[in-house]
Amino acid sequence: MSLVARLCERHSVYLIPSINNLTVVRSVTKARIPNTATSKTDKGKHYGFRILELIPKPPEKQQRIVKKIQALPPRMNQMAVDQDWTSVWPGQRTFHPATVPLPVRQGYPKKNEAPPSKYGNAELMKIPNFLHLTPPTIKRHCEALKKFCTKWPEELDTDTSYDKHFPLEVIYSNYCYSGPSIREPMARIVSFRVKLSNLTLDQHAKDKILRLVGERYDPESDLLTIVADRCPIRKQNYEYAEYLLTALYHESWRKEEWENEKTLADMEYYDWDLEQSRKNLVTVYAWPEIPQDYDYENIPNATEYKIAVSDLVNNGEDDFSVNKYKEAVKKIMFWKPDGDKPNEK
């Protein structure tokens, strides 16, 4: 079929000049430029035949042009010698070599070499610096803060005066952490410290308060310490400690009915005035008469004896207290009123 069609076509072409005799048919063959395009983008420009390349050339590599970023010279080169350093480095900041005009070096040196210089030195950037806290800066801070300060009270010149004017000491801690939270469970703890001698207490009240506080009292420093940590917030603990101290004070002053039943065996310390020793001394001194009352005021050296015996029993036996006791006994036993004859007893 196609062959027939083509034949017809050819005939028709040949028929055209015969119909129109004036037409001159001329065919011109144009020489085309060979297709030398190597890259894909150039292909559209050339339509000629392709050149056979038995060994094709590798495509030309385009050199990537790296734009050179021009950096300014270090800032320290332009710094004046008498510049104001505080305005250069006003706050805390990581070390920057171009800003700090000091030839600092940091790092463990290699053999026969200097430590690494400040440029490109990560070690210098790690460590905390105090370039924002130079002495002139601190002086300036103090000057700025001075107008907010009040005069120090003259009465508080020594440590003992603090105890006198502020007998109660409140201790609590604030914690600084690196993190977005300011909460710290340890910050809730509040301690009250007061000297027992600063509280108005009689003998009974002092005895009772010591029994109530137990080991919270330190006899060496005479300090009573109350630690409150059971509430979750510091203010609550503070108020609780206040309450405890108040309750302790008033409770120690109160005398209950059953407290009168305290016997000699319940005494927490040796009280010579209540003990048998006093009765013995007075009885022996008054012998053969029977003493009317146990008054030892007129017995010579009795006070010394009393102190010696109390110390011996209360503080325990040691060489010093035993010797003291011995001297006291000797003085009582062999006391001479006029220096000529010994006392009978």
Partner: peptide
């Protein structure tokens, strides 16, 4: 070109390091 250094002061986080000038 260095490790990333993270320093925390109180509430502040400081990130330091050395970069190329590219």
């Amino acid at each position: 070109v260095s490790e990333i250094i993270i320093k925390r002061h109180h509430n502040m986080v400081r990130i330091a390091g050395i970069i190329l000038r590219n």
